[in-house]
Structure formats: structure tokens, C-alpha cells
Design a protein around this nucleic acid. Structure first.
Lengths: 332, 332
DNA sequence: TTGTAGGCGTTATCAG
DNA sequence: CTGATAACGCCTACAA
């Protein structure tokens, strides 16, 4: 592969001049022309590795998400990519697969490769990885989930409000025993969504009944198991609020297996949109969050953080919306 | 951030010794111990940028896929990641979004960052990008789609056979006017699947009727439009073979809108599994390909290619399987 | 086994 | 405006 020296030789100028035409310094048009020709002729591409070493910075962002197969995250990535490319960064997508060890590996790579910044949806409720990024001076933005005791920018959906409107809607539809399947207690999203559910029940003058709450893992099999446990429990629910999309799928699969009708036997409201929702029968009522927007806002926060490492961390909360569909509407 | 010199100073050894304990040269246990301690104390991480510049190679693979939101590709990525991490590589996932320009950008980044290799599912039927990788000496493996006139390793599903069994199945179910919605004519997958469809019809003693064939774009809206066009065409199909998962969704949406029943009015077989297939009613008959396996095999091919750049290119074809479900079965 | 020093390809400083 | 040259952090002959 051609180096800057090859170009310089061919254009009969110094490497400094080549570098200037490449990076926009002021140079005589005649020489510039010669350089441009030589670059084309040699198919020269600046070695970004060398450039990064010299300039002590890269144009790469690591986006570490907890599940590439969850459309929620991939939609978000689109928002990130659009901002990144507008700002001249390339996005490196890393899939931690809800696995703390994989997340740690990717954080290490981001640090070792001296990436310009990291957008992280934590697969761990512990602050260790974020702290190692922060202490190395690597700009980080948290997205989707926030972590206790971490001073970092965060972009989140209004989980509490979303869960609140979802549960209130089920109350208004006349459901009596409304259950909740949420995620691991330690995750902010799980806790906030549970909290919104409880508040809505309290406001409706009902006692929150802990036998109707299950903590699962935000994944499909977990949702399935939680629903089974609810159906086999002491108090059989007639409706359920499920705190994310994948678990909603598991819940629906369980109900199908048991030949329970939705919403006749059990009403369902899920958090997050379902992919290809229009093909699922019955259609599912969901709390939608602005996923693309979350990605965009997170990326913009990262841009600001890179420009100004010492600014006060920001916390952006985006609104959610209830999409009422068939799965939660009685008597039609 | 600490450098190797800081570690050397603290451990009271030379940088060469530090480098040796880091990379496994032979060094006195006492010194090694001191180095290890210093590394920990300083939270030293080797600068991969510097290392790459010096060694002229990186431990990064670029995986450029044409659609992050298509579960087919994300499943494949899992297979790639597993092999990569076992071999000590990190995977950089790049989403070209079926956009030739984005693909070109990512190819440029991979080249400029001097990545160790690229796995590419082309978003272009032209060989330009693969050729620029090849001529720069960057190992490439094609996956899912192959390109005319390109000498590179390729890992593919047996598209022709898959389309053949799908169409034969529809014939056997007694469908009379079997249509085909395939992808852009220039893509090998689209052409091969169309070919399998035609062969099956010929074998059944039927004339291939070109008014029953549509070339769409492998995306959902394209499938929807193609189905509309078929329904409004001169010869209304009573069954359709759809050449990928996203277009199948579009086809189903169209049929739902027109209030046509599946399989009563129109039988459907799709290529690729549908995500969360069990929630879709009716359940959809599909030709499944071993997606995880495809990723694994492609990654192994890349490993071999890196070790032996001059070997003869390989072409691996993996079998497909027909999963018969409700959408194609008449009279039950 | 250990240390010294050169160079990977760039950019940036400093004279000219 | 241009060119020579010194870093950036690391690895690896080569010499000790």
C-alpha cells in the first residue's frame, strides 16, 4: 500500500505538502494539483492507524448495545449513525448480548483502540465499566438504562410515565387483577416501569398485590416463564403489563399455549413496539418510545461531551406514547 | 494514559522487557512480577493503535451487512462473533442499509483502518467494492450473495434448491397459479431463487408464466407493492412464493388489507424464517436457511484466508429446509 | 535474559 | 508557502 512518501516522491513535493493538501492547509494550486494526481494514480489512502497515533484521536465511536436482535436497539442505532456520519464519525456496533463479560471486552477494545467516544446501553447494573471509561477520560453516554452513582450523560425514555398510562388504561378497561412482568430489579428501566405500574394502581384505589408481580430478564423465555408462574399462582390475573417487547412475545406465546384468549381471558399491554406488529393477531397495545430519536439525542450528547469533556452531565428524558390496539380492549 | 515507558520506569526494567511480558517472550520471573504489578498499578492498557502501526496488522474484522434490522443478518452475526472471539478478533458491525454509498464508505474505513479482514453481504451487484478490497490485499469473504466475476471466498445458502422445494410444495398442495416475488434481478440470491421456482414449475409440466413474476427490492414495501401488482394483474395468482422474509411481510400485509384469506384465497411460502413466527396468524410456511451456521462458516473461511492469502477461493453452499406451516396447506 | 535504538505512517513545529 | 525533522507508542532486531 502506498504511503505519503510514495505520493510525495511522485508529486515531487515534500510529505508535509502532501499532508497539507490532504488536510486543508494552504498550498500552491500547482503543487496541490500534482499531489491530487499522484494520490489518484497510486490509489493512496491515508493510514488512519498512523494518523490516530500521531493526532492522539480517532474518528470511531463504539456503540455497545445489549441485544442486536432486539429491534428497539437497532432502530436506535439508526439515529446514532445518522448523527455520527454527519459529524464525520464512523460507528462501530458492538453486541454485548446482555452479557457482562462481553460488555467488558468491548469496553476494553474501545479503550485500547482509543475510540473517540462510547454510547452504552449497559448489560450490567454495576458501574464498573462506565467508571473505567470515565477514569480513562473516554467520553460516554448512557442510553436506555441509567446506573446508580454514575456521573455520565444519559438519554432515557420516561419509563415511569409509560408504565403509568399503560396500567391506568387497563384499569379503565375494567380489568380487575392486573399483573406486571418487569425486568431484573437492578435495572433502572425495570424499577421505573414497576414503579409506574404501582402508582397507577394506587391512584385507582387498589392495593398493589405483590403476588401479581414478576421479575424476569427482559428476554423472551423469561417472559414466558413469568406468565406461566402468574397463571399458576394463587391469584390468576385477568390482565398483564409487560415491561419490554421481547418478554411480551414470551407472554403471548404462553397464553397461546394455554389456549387463553387475548383480551378475553387476559388483557395485555407491552412496553416498546413489537416488530411487524401488524401481522400479530390480535394486535398488541403497546407503550412506544421514540427509539430513533433516543439514538439521535444520545449521539448529539456524545458530540457535545467530546467537545467539552468537563461540562455538567445531562439527563434527557423522552416521552412515551400509548398505542391502544386489540389486546387490551374489552367488549367490542 | 500510561504508556509502556511509564510501566518500564515503575518496574525498573526496559520497555523491551515490558513488551516481552505482555506478548509472551521469555523473561525472568522476578522482573515479570514487577512488570505485572506496575501494569496493574498504572492501569496500563497497550495502545492498540500504536501496536497496529508497528505490527502492520489489527485484530479487527469489519462485518458489513445490508440490513441490521433483518433478523436473518443479525443471527448470522452471532455465528461470526463466536468464531471471531475464539480467534482473538473483535467484530465491527457496519450497517450498509442496502445503500451502495454507505457500503463504499464502510469499505473505505475498513481499508483505511487496515482491518484484518472483511465479511461482506453486498448491497451492490457490482464488484467494485470487493475488488478495491482485494486489490489492497485485504482478505474478504462474501456471504449470502455472490458477485459475478469476483474471485473471493463465498458462503451461500442453496437458493435454487430452497426455491425448488418451496414451489414444488405449492404445486403438490394443488395451487394452480403460483406467482413469484423475487428480489432485484442483478442479485445472485434473487436470480437463483427465481430459477428454482421456474425449474419446479417446468418439472410439474407447467409453463412458466412471466406475468406471475415480479422483481422487487427485498424490502417490505417492495413486497407489498409486488403483491398488489400481482393481484391487479391479468392472471390472479392463488399462491405466491416470496424470495425473502421482509418481502413476505409486505405480501402478507397486502393480503390482509385486501381481506384475502391465507391460504384459502392465496397460499404463501416465504424464504428465510420470520421473526417471532409463532405469533403471526396464520403461521407461515418458510424455507429456512442455517443462518448461524452461515456466519460461522464465513468466519472460518476468513480465518483461513488471513492465514493463507493465496489459497484458491472456496465457495460453500449450505442446505435449506422447508418448514411447512399453515399458510400453504389447503383443505384441512 | 536484558537493554538500546530504529522505524511503522502521520502530523505539526520550526526554519527557510 | 515549502521542506526537513521530531514526535506519537509500540515491537523487534541486534548487541551486550
Amino acid at each position: 500500500m502506498a504511503t505519503i512518501y510514495d505520493v510525495a516522491r511522485r508529486a515531487e513535493v515534500s510529505v508535509a505538502t502532501v499532508s497539507r493538501v490532504l488536510n486543508g492547509g494552504s498550498v500552491d494550486p500547482v503543487l496541490a494539483e500534482r499531489v491530487t494526481k499522484a494520490v489518484a494514480a497510486l490509489r493512496y489512502r491515508p493510514n488512519l492507524v498512523a494518523r490516530s497515533l500521531r493526532t492522539q484521536r480517532t474518528r470511531l465511536w463504539a456503540v455497545i448495545i445489549s441485544d442486536v436482535r432486539n429491534p428497539f436497539f437497532t432502530d436506535m442505532v439508526r439515529g446514532i449513525e445518522d448523527v455520527a456520519s454527519a459529524e464525520g464519525y464512523s460507528v462501530v456496533l458492538c453486541n454485548s448480548d446482555e452479557d457482562e463479560a462481553k460488555e467488558a471486552d468491548y469496553v476494553d477494545v474501545a479503550l485500547a483502540e482509543r475510540m473517540a467516544g462510547v454510547i452504552l446501553s449497559p448489560s450490567s447494573y454495576r458501574a464498573a465499566h462506565v467508571n473505567s471509561l470515565a477514569s480513562a477520560g473516554c467520553p460516554v453516554v448512557l442510553v436506555d438504562r441509567e446506573l446508580d452513582g454514575v456521573r455520565a450523560d444519559a438519554v432515557l425514555a420516561d419509563n415511569e410515565q409509560g408504565a403509568h398510562i399503560a396500567t391506568k388504561h387497563l384499569v379503565e378497561q375494567g380489568f380487575e387483577r392486573i399483573a406486571c412482568v418487569t425486568g431484573p430489579e437492578e435495572y433502572s428501566t425495570a424499577a421505573q416501569r414497576l414503579s409506574g405500574y404501582r402508582t397507577a394502581l394506587t391512584e385507582a384505589g387498589r392495593d398493589a398485590d405483590e403476588t401479581l408481580v414478576r421479575f424476569a430478564d427482559f428476554r423472551e423465555p423469561g417472559g414466558h416463564a413469568a406468565m406461566q408462574s402468574l397463571l399458576d399462582g394463587p391469584k390468576r390475573p385477568d390482565a398483564v403489563f409487560v415491561a419490554n417487547n421481547l418478554m411480551t412475545i414470551g407472554v403471548l406465546r404462553c397464553l397461546t399455549e394455554r389456549r387463553l384468549s387475548v383480551p378475553g381471558d387476559v388483557g395485555v399491554v407491552g412496553f416498546d413496539e413489537l416488530p411487524w406488529a401488524e401481522l400479530v393477531r390480535p394486535t398488541i397495545t403497546t407503550v412506544g418510545q421514540p427509539t430513533y430519536e433516543e439514538g439521535r439525542v444520545a449521539a448529539e450528547a456524545l458530540v457535545r461531551r467530546i467537545k467539552n469533556p468537563n461540562a455538567e452531565p445531562t439527563r434527557t428524558v423522552l416521552p412515551t406514547h400509548l398505542h391502544v390496539r386489540e389486546s387490551s380492549v374489552r367488549g367490542r
